[in-house]
Computed example of a mutant assay.
Amino acid sequence: MIKFQGVHKEYDNGFVALKDIDLTIEQGEFVAVIGLSGAGKSTLIRCINRMHDISSGSLMVDDVDVSKLRGKEIRNLRRRIGMIFQSFNLVSRISSLKNVLVSFVPEMPFWRKIFGLYTKEQKIKALEALDRMNILDKAFIRVDQLSGGQQQRVALARTLAQKPSIILADEPVASLDPVTATQVMKDFQKINEELNMTIIINIHHVDLALEYATRVVGIRSGEIVYDGPSSEVTKEILEHIYNGKLEEELSAN
């Protein structure tokens, strides 16, 4: 479970990104965070795995106060929380399989890291993750020879291989064409349903958010202005979230 209580985030330049956020997300939910650029969407999800520190309030992940973690404790937290980025964060000159195997590096003995020696069990887990994403046939293909959608699936497989309980996704379909973006959202939905994994996705594509996520959190100027089932989101609610700039947002996507 993830629980924000009175969370406030102010950057060093004085910009207030989050204002007194109260939010509880249960295990197994699929949550889409929507709102205008600069509304605080990325900041919200990046606080969960301590990519950003909160300024005040309390942020709990499975009854652990994230803000109080230090050093190795933060690294252990991040092992349980997968992170998917818009840019995929893959090593383009190596194969899909080797990119997935990278997920095991933090837990490997130093000598194995130096020589890149992975165990048979790790290789099997990596291949299983690629298979789950229907991309096993690309295991030995260099990532720079894959399409954008295939690269995002490799990134998802790498995250699945570390067996997290939570996946955070920061604009994972922003650089993809509409057909590929839809397929990637279906992949997230499949992971959520089959593995009961919590998915929290920051997304600009309103239509995809409403179709695939079960819950929508709308943020405007650092405040939550809507939190409820995606099925209950109306055009009026969207206009409120987007501060009257809904059509502008839709045309941009």
Rank of each mutant, 00 (worst) to 15 (best):
Asn76Thr: 06
Thr214Ile: 04
Ile74Lys: 15
Pro164Met: 12
Gln86Glu: 00
Gly228Trp: 04
Gly40Pro: 10
Ser221Pro: 03
Ile124Glu: 03
Gly218Leu: 15
Arg112Gln: 09
Asp53Gly: 05
Ala174Asn: 07
Ala129Gly: 02
Leu156Tyr: 08
Leu146Pro: 09
Val102Arg: 14
Leu59Ile: 07
Ile199Thr: 02
Gly82Gln: 06
Glu236Leu: 13
Ala129Arg: 11
Ala32Thr: 01
Asn49Trp: 12
Asp62Pro: 11
Gln5Asp: 06
Val91Pro: 09
Leu44Arg: 07
Leu77His: 02
Leu246Cys: 09
Lys120Leu: 10
Ser87Lys: 10
Val100Pro: 04
Leu90Asp: 07
Ile166Tyr: 03
Gln145Ser: 09
Leu156Arg: 12
Asn49Gly: 13
Ile81Cys: 08
Leu44Val: 08
Gln122Arg: 15
Gly28Lys: 05
Gln86Cys: 00
Leu176Ala: 02
Lys235Pro: 15
Ile201His: 15
Ser58Thr: 05
Lys9Asp: 06
Asn253Pro: 06
Ile224Trp: 09
Val61Arg: 08
Ile25Val: 06
Ser251Gly: 06
Arg79Asp: 11
Glu193Met: 06
Tyr118Val: 07
Arg158Gln: 07
Met83Asn: 09
Leu90Glu: 04
Leu77Ala: 02
Phe88Tyr: 02
Thr119Asp: 09
Leu195Asp: 08
Arg220Ser: 01
Val64Met: 05
Leu168Ala: 13
Phe15Arg: 01
Gly222Phe: 09
Arg158Phe: 04
Asp227Gly: 10
Ile34Phe: 01
Lys72Phe: 12
Gly14Tyr: 01
Lys186Phe: 00
Val206Phe: 14
Asp63Pro: 14
Lys186Trp: 00
Asp12Glu: 13
Ile45Leu: 08
Thr119Cys: 01
Ile84Gln: 11
Leu210His: 01
Asp62Trp: 01
Val206His: 03
Asn99Cys: 15
Tyr11Pro: 15
Gln183Lys: 04
Asp131Pro: 07
Pro172Ile: 07
Ile2Ser: 09
Val16Phe: 05
Met133Trp: 10
Gly244Met: 12
Asn196Leu: 07
Arg153Ile: 04
Arg215Asp: 04
Lys163Gly: 06
Lys123Val: 06
Glu239Val: 11
Ala155Gln: 07
Tyr118Lys: 12
Gly14Cys: 03
Ile34Gly: 04
Val154Ser: 07
Val105Thr: 07
Gln183Trp: 06
Lys163Leu: 10
Ser221Cys: 09
Ile166Asn: 12
Val31Ser: 11
Glu171Thr: 01
Glu249Pro: 12
Tyr118Thr: 07
Glu73Tyr: 03
Gly228Lys: 08
Val33His: 05
Lys41Pro: 15
Lys9Val: 03
Ala169Ser: 01
Ser175Ala: 10
Ile141Glu: 03
Met185Gly: 00
Gly149Phe: 00
Asp63His: 14
Glu10Pro: 11
Thr24Glu: 14
Met60Pro: 08
Asp227Leu: 08
Ile34His: 11
Ser165Cys: 06
Ile219Cys: 10
Val102Cys: 12
Thr119Arg: 02
Thr180Cys: 00
Ile2Val: 02
Ile191Lys: 02
Gly116Asn: 13
Gln122Ala: 05
Tyr212Leu: 03
Gly148Cys: 03
Gly116Val: 05
Ser230Val: 10
Asp62Met: 03
Ile135Phe: 01
Gln151Cys: 15
Gln189Cys: 11
Met60Arg: 14
Phe140Leu: 15
Asp187His: 04
Asn243Gly: 13
Glu29Arg: 15
Ala169Cys: 04
Arg112Pro: 10
Ser96Arg: 08
Lys235Ser: 15
Gly228Gln: 09
